[in-house]
Design a protein around this nucleic acid. Structure first.
Ligand SMILES: [Zn+2]
Ligand SMILES: [Zn+2]
Ligand SMILES: [Zn+2]
Ligand SMILES: [Zn+2]
Lengths: 137, 137
DNA sequence: GTGAACATGAGAATCAGTATCAACTAGCGC
DNA sequence: GCGCTAGTTGATACTGATTCTCATGTTCAC
């Protein structure tokens, strides 16, 4: 209220040890990791990164589409470095193995169904889970 | 540790004032309600029900399929009395209005896609959101 | 009625995620 | 290199949802 001593980020994204660490840790892993998983993994590697920074970095990466965010059934969010094109996931409930899947059919269905009900600006989330071949053995 | 004074529920579901209250409150509402919404609504009606009981009742109703559970983006769960047949939801991001939708197409696609990857015991979640006609005006 | 099994609720505990804010540093101009 | 400033960090407090504890209250079969 008094004056302009605030620091409203102008959009400049700096490279820091922490951000690099989070990105690489994420890149080294195929599956989904929660913020805490990532934090622990970094700690194990000797990379000290505050949990708050992990969350901030993940949010940032997610906003640029560099990682996918999945809200697990228990409410915890998990992140994964992902192709940026629109797709969905097929996740193994046993081992967490993940496959990316696409479905033009679903996309069309979702849009059509929404329009039929007069909805606009449509978005959707689709997740498929199951037990993968390996875990079935 | 001493003897068998424990109380491992054997599956008998009793009728109580609280459970009835939660069920009716849920039935009176068309849309989704969070546990807290429900708790507040009951309180407003003069029905004193502990929040823990609300959660327990909702969990119970959800397990029998009497209500649907939706995990919102912010991580809070919302509940709604629902038809028991398998279906999905089309929700307005503005007013919360909800439509139930079904899609043989999606069901088939999800199953086929999962099998193609060797997954079994497949389940899926599909949610469509948008802005409804009323909110567009 | 009785009593054992079940249910309740106040409050503590848990837990993911966010807000604070003083200390820190990348990147830029010199 | 040097210094400056805006962007970053992280220890920690906090929030808000959901679960746990356990002493006390109820339901319902017999
Ligand atoms: Zn598996
Ligand atoms: Zn899609
Ligand atoms: Zn609406
Ligand atoms: Zn379905």
């Amino acid at each position: 209220m008094t004056d302009g001593h605030e620091s409203a980020p102008t959009g400049v994204r700096r490279t820091t040890r922490q951000r690099t660490a989070v990105s690489s840790a994420l890149a080294e892993t195929g599956g989904f990791l929660s913020a805490r998983d990532l934090h622990d993994r970094l700690a194990a590697q000797g990379e000290r990164v505050g949990i708050a920074t992990v969350y901030r970095t993940l949010a940032s990466l997610a906003s640029t589409g560099e990682v996918d965010v999945l809200l697990r059934d228990d409410g915890e969010s998990v992140y994964r470095r992902c192709s940026s094109a629109h797709h969905h996931h097929l996740v193994c409930r046993e081992c967490g193995r993940t496959e990316e899947v696409t479905g033009p059919t679903v996309e069309a269905w979702a849009t059509a169904e929404a329009e039929r009900h007069g909805f606009r600006d449509v978005r959707h989330t689709v997740e498929i889970t199951g037990i993968c071949a390996t875990c079935t053995l």
